[in-house]
Structures are given as C-alpha cells and as structure tokens.
Amino acid sequence: MTSSTTTTAPGEAFDRTVNTVGTLQDTLVGMAEGFIATLPNLAIGVVVLIITWLVAKFAVRIADRITGKTDIRPSLKNLIDTLVKLGIWLVGLMAALVVMMPGFTPASVIAGLGIGAVAIGFAFQDIFENFLAGVLIMLREKMRIGDVIECEGISGKVEHITLRETYVRKLSGEVTLVPNSMLFKNPVQILTDETQRRHEIMAGVSYDTDLDHAAKVIRSSVESCEAVDTDKGIDIFANEFGDSSVNFKVRWWSGSKPRDMWESTDQVVRAIKRGLDDAGIEIPFPYITHTFKERVPMGNEPGEPSTGS
C-alpha cells in the first residue's frame, strides 16, 4: 500500500496570497470609490435635513402666531405645534433618505411599516396608548392647564400636558408625572372647572337650644363673611342628633381653588363661633356617661374610716 502526499510549491502559495491581498485591496478600493460617489448625495441629504429643521421652526412660529389670535386652549395649541413639527420632519426625513439612497422609495417605507406594524404595536403599546390619550386629552374641552384635579389618589394643579404624560403639581410643591392613559381611562374630578364651588362644615349646638334661633344666628354669621357669595344662597340644615349636640350642616358658595376653600372655611368657622358665643348658645364638648352595675363609694361615707390626718 502506497501513500501519496500533495505538496504545494512555494510559487503557488505566493500566488494565492497575492490574489487574496489583491481581492481585499480591490474591495476596499471599491468601497472607497462608492463612498466618494455617494458623498454628493450625503451632502444633499444633510442640506435637506437642515432645511427641514429651518422650515419646521418657521412653521411652528407661524402656527403660534395664528393660534395666538384665537381663544384656543394652551394644550390644544401645543398639540397643533407638535403635529406641524412632526409632519414637516416626516416629509423631510423621507426626502433625505430618497436623496441619500436612490433605491429607497416612499412605497418601500409604507410596505415596511405595514409588515412591522403588528410587532411595533405590541412592543410600544404603552407609548402609543399614552400618545393617543394625550391627543384626545388635548382635544377635549375639559381639564385645562391651571385646573386643580383629583384622579386615583393624585391631586394638584395641571402644569403641562405633553403627548405622553401630564405634569400635575401638588399643592405642597412636588410635581407628579402622570401617564395620559391614566387620566383618560379613569374618572377625573376637576375642582376648578367653575370659578366657584360649594363648601360645607358641621356646626353643633346643645340639645336645650332653640334650633330655629340657632339657625338664624348661624345664617347671619355666615352672611357676614367676605369670602362667601351670598347671592348663591346659604344652606343651614339641622342634619343629625349627635352624641352631645344637634348638628347643623352649613353650606355656602365660594372660590373653587383650594386656597379659596381654606380661607372661606376659616372665616365661616370663626364667624359661627363668635355668633353663637354672643347669643349665649353652647357649643357642647363631647359628654361621656359611665354606668356601673354596683354602687361606687364617693369620698368618706358613714361607716367608713376617715382618711384625714
């Protein structure tokens, strides 16, 4: 049995090495030539992007000037500015891509979006949901910037509305970034939808008081407060039999802002206390009566030893 070995001549190995180097060199030269050939297109694409930026900036100024002459809400004004800027940038980016890549067409973009729409929708579901919720929040009439709202335990003043989130400034100063979908899907209580709203407190008088007289005293006391809008009426209702008092529910109209509520409540409580004191009507403390099954000795009773010294 014979074995044969194949040997490569030094000349053949050298030729292969030279061919590999030559191929790599040709590839690099081709890439460089291609890059140089595309430089004009890249430069034109950059120019298109710069023009797009300038046009978008100028268009937003025009939109601001047009909307500034109307009574449009600030949130809707922000939406118009965003849509104008977004539309111009989409057109500009598409034009730049067509210039830089001649084989690129708007039809291919649409086809690509159609193929990946489902995957993108699942991947960015929360982002799209907040985006659409932000658009709808800006379009609806209620909940303007500056309103005080309450939603899902969050309360404060609406400071800014974007396409993804709403900035709610707490009355204590902190800001909460609330996803728009939360404000759109859940009930939102707008405390400052009107300039005034109704406030109420409970005021109690002793059981031996003439309730008609007490109601007149409370009404006149509330009417004397500057923060109370007497034109909208004041309600004084005998509401319940409490543990130590008959309680009146006192309702009045004042400013809708939280500060207005606290100021008017302060004035009303002070005025009622002063009025009832002047009329000699008791505002009773809570009384507690203890009942014992057996007689409890009080002090030194007959038959008991004296505790004196």
Rank of each mutant, 00 (worst) to 15 (best):
S3F: 04
S4C: 09
P10H: 00
P10L: 11
F14V: 00
D15E: 09
V21P: 02
L28E: 10
M31R: 05
E33L: 06
A37C: 03
P40F: 06
V46L: 09
V48A: 09
I50R: 03
I50N: 02
I51P: 03
T52Q: 11
F58H: 08
V60G: 03
T67L: 15
T67M: 13
G68F: 08
T70H: 11
R73S: 15
R73Y: 09
S75D: 15
L76H: 07
L79H: 01
I80L: 02
T82L: 13
K85I: 03
L86M: 08
G87Y: 10
I88A: 07
L90N: 14
L93T: 14
A95R: 08
A95N: 04
A96K: 01
P102T: 12
F104N: 00
T105M: 01
A107H: 04
S108E: 13
G112C: 00
G116S: 08
A119R: 03
I120Y: 04
A123M: 14
A123Q: 09
D126L: 10
A133R: 03
A133C: 01
V135W: 05
V135H: 04
R140T: 05
E141M: 12
K142P: 02
M143W: 11
R144K: 15
E152S: 15
E152Q: 14
G153Q: 08
S155H: 15
S155V: 09
E165T: 15
E165K: 15
L171H: 00
L177V: 14
L177N: 06
N180K: 10
K185M: 07
N186D: 14
Q189W: 06
Q189A: 05
D193S: 10
E194K: 12
T195Q: 15
R198A: 00
R198L: 00
R198S: 03
A203P: 02
S206T: 11
H213V: 11
K216Y: 07
V217A: 02
I218M: 11
S220E: 15
V222W: 05
S224W: 06
I234M: 07
D235N: 14
N239D: 12
D243I: 09
F248S: 10
F248R: 12
D266T: 07
V268K: 03
V269I: 11
I272A: 09
R274H: 07
D278E: 12
A279F: 10
G280V: 07
I283R: 05
P284L: 00
P286Y: 08
F292T: 03
K293I: 13
K293D: 12
E294A: 06
R295K: 10
V296T: 14
P297D: 08
G299D: 13
N300P: 01
E301I: 15
S306N: 11
S306Y: 05
S306A: 12
T307A: 12
S309F: 07
